[in-house]
Amino acid sequence: MRAFIISTIMLIISGSAHAFDVEDRKVFKGHDGEPVLRIISTADISYFAPMINSFRATRPDVTIDYTVASSTQVMQAIYEEKQPFDLAISSAMDLQIKLANDGYARKHTSYSAQDLPNWAVWNDMVFAFTQEPAGFVISNKLFEGYAIPKNRQELINTLRQNPKKFEGRVGTYDIRKSGAGYLFATQDARASDTYWRLTEVMGTLDPRLYCCASDMIADVVDGTLAIAYNVLASYAEQSPYIDAFTIVLPSDFSTVMLRTMLIPSTSKNPELATSFLNFALSQTHPTETSTMLQTKSLRQAKQSTLTRISLGPGLLVYLDYFKKKHFMEEWENAILQE
């Protein structure tokens, strides 16, 4: 069992197995330094700080120790190292479900259930507090003179017709490195065959592969990329250089990811974690107007084209050793065309 899990984890993560990699860390000091709420999250500090600060306004005594790590490192920290975090926040829905399914999350039933839609809770353990669609981020400068593609088919046509123009200027997640990228890729592949055709077309254009959405956005802004595929619109919207690009949620279908929270079973302060969890849910869910649930691009998109990834054991399928190996091979065959 252990050997297998480690091998699975090893596939997802790159780096050492004995200590997870911290990308960033910030301690929000409370009055007395006690109690301490330890959060491990995939979200940047700047993205989540407003939520933390509103919580501290109601509980000034609490110190919040906020650690940023990649989704695979969050998994590593809790699944393998059993680090005593009080709250795990991740955009990798499949890994969050795996944590909960395998008994690494506490049940939490004291939330006000009437405020939560069914899709936002799984097994009273995993709670979604954002909806983040993935879309195209298109450089305005490099697409001058070209029609902005509205869906995957149009994008395929545009790329096919102008191989010279887009050679080396398309970017997407390296799903071997990015949990979110793998999640989007598998969900896209499940939804439509167009995904594979698009991947193959991108493969012919010497694509650039990224670990993180922010790098892709940065490369679109500085003109390295003409188009980035499967970028979280929520990140792109927050970019200060939003004028440099256009965000398109494909009109054939757009995959919507849910950012979720869970209280790890290793938590040393579950009551405090519970109150933070309830606070976060009460900030986002009841009115359905929170920007975390209803981003600008989500509001503008046609509702029927949005495919929300559902929380549930189905997500475990793509974590299966064979399934994953198979999918990676297929993806590599498509994207890495020498």
Binding site: A100, N101, G103, V121, W122, N123, D124, R190, S310, G312, P313, G314, L316, V317, Y318, D320, F322, K323, H326
Partner: peptide, 25 residues
């Protein structure tokens, strides 16, 4: 042997109520 786990094989277990699902091959 190659196994291509169908998505529905685990998602069907959770279709009505939230259930934890496990499998072994």
């Amino acid at each position: 042997i190659s196994i291509d786990l169908p998505y529905s094989s685990l998602s069907m277990l959770d279709s009505v109520t939230d259930e934890r699902a496990f499998y072994a091959i």
